[in-house]
Structure formats: C-alpha cells, structure tokens
Design a protein around this nucleic acid. Structure first.
Lengths: 151, 151
DNA sequence: GTTTATATTTAAGCGCGCTTAACTATTAAG
DNA sequence: CTTAATAGTTAAGCGCGCTTAAATATAAAC
C-alpha cells in the first residue's frame, strides 16, 4: 500500500521531470556540457567555492577524475582554480562570470515550460499553487541535506 | 519582472530537482547506465515500443549513435530488438522484464526522499498538497508534449 | 523493373569520463 | 626532524557516446 500523498507526488514528478529534463538536457548538449560537469557546476554555484575532493565526494568519483574534469572546465574558462593560502595543498575552485551565466541559463532552460503552465491557470488556482508550494519548499529545506557535509 | 507564480515554482524546482536528481544519478551510476541510456529507456517505457530513429529524434543524436546504443542495451538484456513484420526496414525495440524493473527502480530512486517529506506534514497540509498537485498535474498534461510526435 | 526514398547497420576516429597506480607538494603528529 | 597523513596531479588504459561516410536491406514510386 502506498499513501495517497506519495501517489500524487509520483504522478506529479513524472510529468514534471519529463518536461524539465528535456529542456535541461537539450541546453546542456548545446553547450557541450556533460551531466557530470553540470552537476559539478551546480555544486560550485551552491557552495560559492569548493575544493577538488569536494567535487569527488559530490559526484562519487575519484580525485583523479575530478582533477581532470576541473582541468577541462578551467580550459573552457567556466571555472577558475586558485591555491588556498591557508593550506597550500587545497585548491579553491570558483565559477567565472561566464560560468555563472552558464549555470543560470541552465536553470532557466529547465523552467522554460512553466510560463505555458501558468497561462492555463486562473488567479485563484495560481494563489493556491503559490501557497502550497511555498509551504512544501520550506518543509523540504528542513530535511537533512541529500549528502552533507561535503557532497 | 517575474511573476510570483514563476518565482515560487523556481524555488520549488531548485530544492526539488536537487533532491530527486541526486538519488537518480546515484542509482544510474550503480547500474552503469548513462543519462542517454536512461533517457532512451524512459522513452521506450512511455511508448511501450519504438524504433531506432525514434530514439535518435528523442535524444537528438544520429541514427548511427542510437543503433550502437541499442546494441549495447540489447547485450545487457535490458531491451530486445525485433523486426517489424509490416515493414522489415523497421526494428521494434521493447523493454525486457529486466528492463522494466530497471526503469521502475530508477523512478523509485528519484522519489525516495518523499516519504521523509511526508513525515513533516500534518493531515491538513497533506490534503492541501494532494489537491493542488493533482490540479497542477492535470493542467501540465494538457500542455503540448515537449517534443512530439516522435521525440 | 529500375530508380528513389527510408530504416538501419558497420567502420573509423575523436574526446570524455572514469579507473588504478605512481608521483609531488604541503601540513600535522610523534 | 623524521614519519605519516592529506590534497592534488599525471600517465596509461578502457569503454562509451558521439560523429561522418559508406554499405545493406526493404519498400514505394514512376
């Protein structure tokens, strides 16, 4: 037996993911970015700056692999890699301005279909959606992070 | 200026996608499946059966690439490829039983955090979510398909 | 029945994403 | 101060995901 709540959420996720992912993937391909790369970029964006091994933890790959990925993203001028003055073993990885643009645009690509959805709703329905999703977002933020502290 | 509706949806998508994608990607990696492969499998699942060129259209890649991908998925016994008796140029691609399991489990992986979310809600809130999301899912289904007819 | 269009496959080739193993540089611990 | 731990890089190697170009097989059109 599955709860009515979960059942509703599952249906919602299915239509929702299919639409969001389609734009997302299309845009990523245009920009020649792999899922791993996007995933890393989003992580850096969220943390503002991070280390090589943090990327390894987040993606579940070896340090060697992240180091190589970082190489390629640096070459593409999407991120910059500097030395941590406090511990010179660490590298500090951050998005460039261009990198920020890429992340933001990727997010927007994911959300492009939402204005079409909005146009199907009347004012009362919109209000209802706003109230409910705000509540749900708040609750979701209270959950433990999907993989903390470093991942 | 962005509407309050879109703003709420964006916030929601951000927390929501991050959690759903994390489980999703982790599971895919465990099963040694790439995003392209998952994408193709979901398409076959949704359509029940499809052709090689339909996969090309859906993923935005060449027929040569899909053909090779189909090869590998057939080898892994996740899909089967048979000849269309009505037009022997076509191949009919379908999920095996094992392939169905993989798709279903991947979907479930994506939804694993939802029971945690449910436990943070009281009965009234759950009701509210169910009503709103059912409405929203219905509306979303009315939208033109992200890429029809073949993709 | 020959030509043309459609659906798929094969082969060669490139770059990415990953691994393991070996190495360098820096910091922490005894 | 030597030893051990930590952070990152480099090199070799494998398979995937993609491409273009050429080939094969079937069906449709004239």
């Amino acid at each position: 037996m599955i709860s009515p709540f979960l059942e509703t959420m599952r249906d919602w996720i299915e239509v929702f993911m299919r639409r969001s992912m389609h734009n997302f993937i299309t845009y990523a391909k245009e920009k020649n970015l792999s899922m791993s790369q996007i995933n890393a970029l989003f992580h850096i964006h969220r943390k503002n700056s991070c280390s090589v091994s943090e990327i390894s933890d987040h993606l579940g790959i070896t340090n060697a692999a992240s180091s190589q990925m970082v190489d390629r993203l640096v070459q593409q001028k999407i991120i910059i890699r500097t030395e941590d003055p406090n511990d010179r073993r660490n590298k500090i990885i951050q998005l460039t301005d261009h990198g920020h643009e890429v992340v933001i645009e990727t997010m927007h690509a994911r959300q492009r279909w939402l204005s079409d959805l909005e146009s199907l709703l009347n004012e009362k329905e919109k209000e209802q959606v706003i109230t409910t999703l705000k509540m749900l977002t708040e609750k979701a933020k209270q959950l433990h992070d999907p993989c903390e502290p470093n991942c």
